[in-house]
Nucleic acid binder design. Structure first.
Lengths: 269, 269
DNA sequence: CCTGCTTGGTTCATATGTTGAACCATTGTT
DNA sequence: AACAATGGTTCAACATATGAACCAAGCAGG
């Protein structure tokens, strides 16, 4: 691992839950020497990526980040165009929703939105989504670039007893995702969290990310799942459209089939 | 310069004007070897700070930045609370306005706002403000932490024939800023750009940044200057208040004196 | 006042990771 | 076909990162 990577890694320890970190604390978190960490922090401070609270001497993220974020959003507008559909999806389903974007072989959280409907709800507090264990990840594997598969297989970390742990099981999960147009992850990342996700596409037709609804197992009935799926279709179409892309025909077809089947199996009373 | 700094420096070449940069181009911009730059980019890509456009193979800023920006804004809310006052200031003065924040010894651009009043207007296209040559910089020097002075003196780069080029001249400019509560830079950074700035403060009473109006020399009359100053006071109070701070008494007094004097000298007809 | 604990920060010999000229593979242009 | 771009890779030479040990400052308790 390069020195630069190690330096950049430090930034990932700053989260809304812990926005200010002291030198010693950061050493423990990163598992690195104090001198090393200090020099890394100095490099980050020089370039404006962190700054030191003059009162507490602790470090926090710096202003340079804001500028880069602005440039990024101008270059690849993603946050714009996600907010409204994500909120609408949360309102319609009464569950927590989130959107993620694929960069290289990593699926990053872009935004999450909780519905106030239930007091027990899922909170998304991870920054990147494991590809084999989440609904969004399955979408990425099913509709994203090929090399993703090699990366996903590498560790196949078992988060829960239900986590997919064999290459075969993963392949069939991916096939199911391709067939229905929805990623499905029932307690495979966190027990009692059931998620359904739909893919998102950019103007070039590539998979750009995923939108997902995370529900609590105890209230995840087939009716809810069907409702989530219909609203997911809308959300995915809206976001993809806002990003200047269109849903590929094969995905639209898969959705149509999936919805038709669920109607056959569970006819509305 | 550390390898990490060099890596981070690469990010600063991505701007709204040039959001996608190829490897060779970036080598030229950074003046570094191709292999070096490539490894740096890989480190940035691993951590999500840049991503490669799969079509053009060129690099652009990545999604990790957005998350950090969100955390930063939650930690130190600055953008919120600047937008409205800055816009109001631009409307009231008919000139380009901008806000900057101090981090360590560097004054970073936070946001700029152009007024559509005149078709000839100032455009802020720098990312950091030289302390000795800009109105905002003088505010930082006058009201900011002491060590800033040592840094400002180091190069004293002459941007225009009017740029302050001696330690004595700088000292008296800072004293003038302290006395009036306004930083004044008439063509010292760019010829024909006249700027007035007021300081901004955070909850701990430290100088947090500056708010500034940049006008075109040919229309910069004493009347306009007076109007800019009164509106700057409002903007500075508003932003500082939005950041949870208050204007120190000495600054308020300086403003009161400055406004009274300008009224004596230039009585309203 | 001292002792012990924490914190942020610095030093310097060691060796690890970084560097860049030269290299290859593709692509588009003349 | 030859040329000149592009992105990307290799490896010996060397510069730079590393971390144990160190200092100074602040704080709590006896």
């Amino acid at each position: 691992m390069s020195a630069a990577s190690k330096t950049l890694e430090l930034l990932s320890f700053f989260t809304p839950a812990q926005p200010e970190i002291g030198l010693s604390q950061l050493c423990r978190l990163a598992g690195r020497d104090k001198a090393t960490t200090h020099r890394h922090l100095q490099a980050l401070e020089e370039t404006g990526f962190v700054e030191q609270n003059p009162l507490t001497k602790r470090y926090r993220l710096g202003p340079a980040i804001l500028q880069l974020a602005q440039t990024r959003e101008l270059t690849v507008p993603r946050k714009d165009g996600v907010d409204a559909p994500l909120r609408a999806l949360a309102d319609a389903t009464g569950e927590t929703t989130h959107a993620s974007i694929l960069s290289g072989t990593v699926l990053y959280k872009l935004m999450a939105c909780e519905s106030p409907r239930h007091s027990i709800r899922v909170v998304i507090d991870i920054e990147t989504f494991p590809l084999h264990a989440t609904a969004s990840g399955l979408c990425a594997l099913a509709f994203g670039p090929g090399p993703l598969l090699d990366v996903a297989r590498r560790p196949l970390t078992p988060f829960t007893p239900s986590t997919i742990d064999s290459a075969d099981a993963l392949t069939s999960a991916i096939e199911a995702t391709r067939a229905t147009g929805f990623g499905r992850a029932l307690g495979t990342f966190e027990t009692d969290v059931h998620s359904i996700a739909a893919p998102l596409f950019d103007p070039t037709g590539f998979l750009a990310g995923a939108v997902s609804v995370a529900s609590v197992a105890t209230r995840f009935t087939p009716e809810l799942e069907a409702r989530i799926k219909t609203h997911l279709i809308t959300a995915s179409r809206d976001i993809t459209h806002n990003w200047g892309g269109t849903i590929p025909a094969n995905v639209e077809n898969a959705w149509a089939n999936a919805v038709a089947q669920s109607k056959d199996l569970e006819p509305t009373p």
